[in-house]
């Protein structure tokens, strides 16, 4: 039995020593969480998102990806472990992290407009305070990024599934946080729209934001993410995408035999030789 968790910690220490200037946007150590009086949905999860990195979180349904996100932003109590956002505990870093839930978490029947939804991403507890010019400008910019500006006045519940995901992404972007946690933003999107969204995430990362994105799309992680984390209640493997997304790791993550290569075609995922500190 290998211990990828420990290996990842080592990898991180290596990174920290070679790049002392690189701070972690997100630093999760030994995290266990779930529902009360039930076995934890995730156990001993240790992972990190370096500043300015796009990290993909993959794992089968029920692997605990959503629970991990919810634990990070304080929606689930931590049974064990620690979460730091830019070196700070969550309570002092609320404004630094923006969370995009799965679309099913939102009550779409509530009578709010598309613009209302994006604006609420800007909300802090400010009694009697309306939206500032900055709030509006940022919200419109986010709407334009996801190509929903033309629907701004429409009722949010009238949007299609794919548009709802883009709307939630816009709201998350509008919050203006340095760290973004995105729970399945690509689910149910067609290839073209997904391509657009990945380009948006790339642009955000290039602008210095850090992103952890949960997805079922392995090729997207392989092609676009700096690092990948494979989760199935525990971290199965974590590190550079090319090193992590091997047949062996994916089989263990998804508990079945998966071929990460396109049959007959060129390899979609390059399997890197074992490097010290990444995969065994």
């Amino acid at each position: 039995m290998i211990e990828p968790v420990r290996e990842h910690v080592d990898a991180r220490e290596v990174l920290a020593s070679t790049h002392p200037h690189r701070a972690y946007a997100l630093d999760v150590r030994g995290l266990s969480a779930g529902y009360p009086r039930q076995p934890p949905a995730i156990e001993g999860v240790t992972l990190a998102v370096a500043e300015g990195e796009l990290v993909g979180l993959v794992g089968p349904n029920g692997a605990g990806k959503s629970t991990l996100f919810k634990a990070i932003v304080g929606l689930r109590p931590l049974a064990a472990g620690e979460v730091r956002v830019f070196g700070q505990p969550l309570a002092r870093a609320r404004d630094d992290v923006a969370y995009m839930p799965q679309v099913e978490e939102v009550e779409w029947a509530f009578p709010v407009s598309v613009l209302d939804v994006v604006l609420s991403g800007r909300r802090r507890l400010l009694p009697f305070r309306g939206w500032s010019a900055v709030d509006r400008a940022v919200a419109w910019d986010a709407l334009e990024r996801v190509h929903l500006a033309q629907y701004a006045r429409r009722q949010a519940g009238q949007l299609s599934g794919g548009e709802r995901r883009r709307l939630l992404l816009a709201r998350t972007i509008a919050r203006g946080s340095r760290l973004l946690l995105l729970d399945e933003p690509f689910a149910g999107l067609d290839a073209a729209v997904q391509h657009d969204l990945v380009a948006i995430l790339d642009a955000l990362v290039h602008a210095g934001r850090s992103i952890l994105v949960a997805t079922h799309d392995l090729s997207c992680v392989a092609n676009s993410c700096d690092e990948a984390v494979c989760l199935n209640r525990r971290v199965i493997a974590a590190g550079p995408s090319s090193a992590v997304l091997t047949e062996e790791v994916l089989s263990r993550t998804f508990e079945r035999h998966l071929l990460p290569l396109t049959p007959g075609g060129p390899p979609r995922i390059a399997v890197a030789p074992p490097a010290s500190g990444s995969q065994p």
């Binding site: 929606l75 939102v106 009550e107 509530f110 909300r123 507890l125 309306g130 949010a156």
Partner: peptide, 24 residues
Amino acid sequence: VVALYRELVFASYDPATATASGLP
């Protein structure tokens, strides 16, 4: 309602994210 309208709306249509955003 006037004072906390925007907060009430956020907490109504998406309580989880409102909480994650630091709203009570």
